[in-house]
Design a protein around this nucleic acid. Structure first.
Lengths: 347, 347
DNA sequence: CTGAAAGCGCTAACAG
DNA sequence: CTGTTAGCGCTTTCAG
């Protein structure tokens, strides 16, 4: 127990000596490896407890695993991501694995570069697995990463032989919103999405797929798409809505690509002196906890983030155990949650 | 560059061979250590670039540093914490250090146990420094942790010789709110705080200090404190407010201990068919980005989370460099941001 | 200023 | 079922 000043940390050698066995035996017991008698297991465990021994991940990592899983989030402020993280950690709770989160939450967003740096850092630290949430990297890069470390990609519409994928049917989710608004009588429905600078990613990013779904649904109803591209942040929503509200012929409904975007939209609408849903309807995507808030009551698309996280964790552990197994692609179905920010247009 | 299947990862030995120098030289160049000629530095750097070499943190950690800083958050959903994280990462951006976040965001909250497990995991992974945000552990435990790894504690009103501390003047912040509400004419001002089960921590937890500040300010105005203890979560605010609103003689103002709590309060108020601030005033603490949202406009106390994070990062790097330096205690001054959820009482 | 050699703590082969 | 031995990739003495 002694946490004294100069006391050297207890190592596997100390445990082995204390239990009068070999270090191999201790190692095996820790990893629940095959080939240890119950008696020895008992003795070793007791020695571990008595000495308060804890294995060092770095040393283990040099030969075996580090028992650490990293989750890379594009943005720590988006309240949707905690749902995913919850799902992952809850699935890993009873295992030996530890979850650590990396984020490029700094100033620059949609930054492929900082994501790359983070991914490298994860690999350098010998982590056992990686969950990438809505990564910005291209398919080639993702494959290269996945070849080096078991990887699950969340949110990209991208099949790969090297990583597993869990993704929401974003096109369907967007259509759900459009259908709902059209059903209420709206014709001028605008969409605020995230600008997708790189051509190659356009088809596979969740935002792009939502945009496509929106466009197709509008067309199906014989309506014209009305797109404003800013970004999936509160500020993006604010700026996008400002732009839309300045028009003489402003839309009667705004479909924001994410709840966090809708938050900015609501702020802009309030500033313009308009009332929701009387003057304008607003819908979001993700069904975050903030959408349900009393003063908000945002109509939104639920994509079951917790479930997505759980699925990702399961796939990841699976792949850590068998790195060569065939890859899996899971699609989840979104549902619409109607609240108080959408209603029939006033006119 | 070859990211081929079986290609062994390039190590320091490969770099040394390529540059025709010793591994020691390479090691020194990487660490910007003393005693390398510019010519050699140049050669080594070129070899590193040509081979795309990246040092493995685990291996480095066995003898030296891992260049990794961990931040432990009590809750990933509270929108105040990203501000702190932003401050930390922005300060560390141009260093070799990498920030990784750990959170006990699972189901159980205020869980000393899961915090401990996380702290241990951080230490086991040989991280170079640790930032603890509003930790639940007691002083003895915190000291023990800090003895093992350079540590900065954010949010606890606790002076220690072993860790540095950055903390907001929570008592003053609470008084700011009470003074503001009393100035508007309120007399029945309730406070929703977080239950503090452990006696020993009562004086040092931010929530407890806010509660104390609230009580003292009320007394100074000759008013009686009215406390409901739930938790610093949205749900805590919801349940606490529900309880308060059921009373026949309900308060005219509710001061929530954190913005996230205020969110729950607003939901409960809306459900009760009451209007803010006409029927009841609501104030929060933290001045998160959500407080500024158009449909919210929450009056809140700003404690400059980004600045707190920056200070913490600076102190931490400082201590990583000189582990034996005297400890520092920084207090920041909160300011009140008045928005639209507070007004004179109706009666 | 440079390099050879000795570990850091652990796991994986390999023998007994 | 158990123990011995040889490294993993890096940093650190300590000589040259």
């Amino acid at each position: 127990m002694e946490t004294g000043e100069g006391t050297r940390r207890v190592t596997i050698v100390d445990v082995a000596a204390h239990a009068q066995v070999s270090t191999t035996a201790v190692s095996k017991v820790m990893r629940n490896a095959y080939g240890v008698s119950p008696a020895m297991r008992e003795r070793v465990n007791q020695a571990i407890a008595e000495l308060g021994y804890r294995p060092r991940a770095a040393a283990r990592g040099m030969r075996g695993q580090t028992y650490t899983i990293a989750v890379i989030l594009p943005d720590i402020r988006n309240p949707f991501f905690p749902d995913i993280v919850d799902g992952i950690t809850s699935h890993l709770r009873d295992t030996d694995y530890q979850v650590l989160i990396g984020t490029r939450s700094g100033i620059p967003r949609t930054d492929t570069d900082s994501e790359l740096r983070l991914t490298d850092a994860i690999v350098d630290r010998g982590m056992d697995g990686l969950v990438l949430v809505a990564p910005a990297a291209g398919p080639v890069r993702l494959d290269a990463t996945a070849k080096g470390i078991p990887t699950v990609v969340i949110g990209r519409h991208l099949r790969s032989a090297h990583h597993d994928t869990v993704v929401d049917d974003d096109a369907r989710g967007a259509a759900l919103v459009v259908d709902h608004l059209v059903g209420l009588g709206h014709r001028r429905i605008a969409h605020i999405d995230q600008r997708e600078p790189e051509r190659g990613r356009a088809e596979t990013m969740p935002n792009a797929v939502r945009t496509r779904g929106y466009g197709e649904a509008m067309r199906a109803h014989g309506l014209e798409a009305d797109l404003v591209s800013t970004g999936y942040t509160e500020e993006g929503g604010y700026l996008g809505a400002k732009q839309l509200l300045e028009r003489t012929d402003r839309p009667t409904a705004i479909f924001a690509g994410a709840d966090i975007v809708a938050m900015g939209v609501l702020t802009a609408v309030a500033e313009a002196g308009l009332r929701v849903p009387h003057d304008i309807s607003v819908a979001g995507y993700d069904n975050t906890s903030f959408a349900a808030l009393g003063p908000i009551g945002l109509t939104s698309v639920d994509q079951a983030g917790r479930q997505i996280g759980t699925d990702a964790a399961r796939l990841l552990l699976d792949r850590v155990a068998r790195r060569d197994r065939v890859s899996t692609f899971i699609t989840t179905s979104p549902t619409l949650v109607v609240r108080r920010t959408t209603a029939a247009p006033a006119s």
